[in-house]
C-alpha cells in the first residue's frame, strides 16, 4: 500500500506532463510511462498536495472504471465537484495511474488538459468529454446511487474512453439526466456483459440495422434537437421519453429492447 494525498499538478508540472505525452505518444507497453509519471508526482515543485483532500493508494490497479471512480471519488469528495473539475488534480490522477488510464497510443496532448480549447475544423471549443478521468468521475458523482447506470457504463477497464461512453459524455444533457441514461442503457447496453448490445434483427431484409453507436447518435439527435425544443427532457422519465421517440428504421429495433426491459420490470413488480 502506497498512500498519497490527492495533489494538484502545478503550471511547471503541466509542462512536464505535456512533454511526457508528446515523448511517449506511441509506446508498445503503457507501463513504460510509469517511471516518468512517478517522477512528476514525486517532485514537490511539479506537484503539491491539496488541502482538505483525502488519500489514494498508488499501488492499487483496477479491473473496471467503476472501481477506479469509487476509489478516487471518496478521496476527492471533501473538495466537492470543483475537485473533479480541477485541472491540476485531474492531471495528478493521470500520473498516478498512467499505465491503466492511457493506452499504448496516447491521445493528442490537448485532450488531457481540462478546459483547454482544442482546435476543431473551424472553431475551437472545450472538449472535456475526451478526458477519461473527468468523464468517469462526473458520471460516478452524478449517478452513483443508481443501481444500473454506473455498473453498466463503467463496467469496462479504466482506460481511454470507448466509443459508447465518449458519445454519451459529449452531450451534457445526457450526462446530467438519470432518466436519459436509464433509457440509453436499456436500449443499447447489455446489462449482463456491459458494453453495447448486438444490433437487433430487422423486420425486413431491406432495412439495414444501424449499429448501436450510430443508433445512439440518431436517438440523441432526435431527443435533443427535435424533442428538446418542445419538451423539458431533463424532467421526463425514461418511459415518457421512449414514447416520444418515433419508430424510425434505425431505432425501432433498439426500442424493442427497451420496451421488453420495461415490460419485464412491470411483470416482476406485479
Amino acid at each position: 500500500m502506497n498512500l498519497k494525498q490527492i495533489s494538484a499538478i502545478t503550471e511547471k508540472g503541466e509542462e512536464a506532463f505535456r512533454a511526457l505525452v508528446k515523448e511517449t505518444a506511441n509506446v508498445t507497453d503503457p507501463a513504460e510511462r510509469k517511471a516518468l509519471a512517478a517522477a512528476i508526482i514525486a517532485d514537490p515543485e511539479l506537484c503539491v498536495p491539496v488541502e482538505g483532500a483525502s488519500y489514494i493508494d498508488l499501488d492499487l490497479r483496477f479491473e473496471t472504471a467503476l472501481e477506479f471512480a469509487s476509489h478516487v471519488h471518496e478521496a476527492i469528495l471533501p473538495l466537492g465537484t470543483s475537485g473533479i473539475r480541477n485541472r491540476g488534480i485531474n492531471l495528478f490522477l493521470y500520473c498516478a495511474y498512467i499505465d491503466q488510464l492511457m493506452k499504448g497510443r496516447a491521445r493528442l496532448a490537448d485532450s488531457y488538459f481540462l478546459d483547454e480549447k482544442a482546435k476543431g475544423q473551424s472553431v475551437s471549443v472545450i472538449r472535456n468529454y475526451r478526458n477519461a478521468v473527468f468523464v468517469f468521475l462526473s458520471l460516478y458523482h452524478l449517478h452513483r446511487e443508481d443501481p444500473v447506470i454506473c455498473p453498466v457504463l463503467l463496467g469496462q477497464a479504466p482506460n481511454e474512453l470507448g466509443n459508447a461512453l465518449e458519445k454519451i459524455a459529449q452531450n451534457n444533457n445526457v450526462m446530467g439526466s438519470a432518466a436519459i441514461l436509464d433509457l440509453v442503457v436499456r436500449m443499447f447496453f447489455d446489462p449482463q456483459k456491459g458494453g453495447y448490445r448486438k444490433a437487433p434483427r430487422q423486420k425486413s431484409r431491406k432495412d439495414k440495422a444501424k449499429n448501436a453507436g450510430k443508433a445512439l447518435q440518431e436517438l440523441s439527435s432526435i431527443l435533443f434537437s427535435q424533442c428538446a425544443r418542445n419538451y423539458d427532457i431533463g424532467r421526463m422519465t425514461a418511459l415518457q421519453m421512449l414514447r416520444l421517440v418515433p419508430n424510425t428504421i434505425g431505432l425501432s429495433g433498439w426500442k424493442r429492447y427497451a420496451e421488453a426491459s420495461f415490460a419485464s420490470e412491470e411483470a416482476s413488480a406485479a
Binding site: R85, V125, I126, R127, N128, Y129, S138, L142, Q170, N172, N173, M175, G176, S177, D232, G234, R235
Partner: peptide
C-alpha cells in the same frame, strides 16, 4: 407548471436547478 434552470458549459454535464 414547473420551472427548470439548466446551466450549461461546453463539455460538461449540465447543472439543473428544478
Amino acid at each position: 407548471y414547473n420551472m427548470t434552470l439548466q446551466f450549461e458549459r461546453g463539455g460538461e454535464p449540465a447543472q439543473r436547478v428544478n
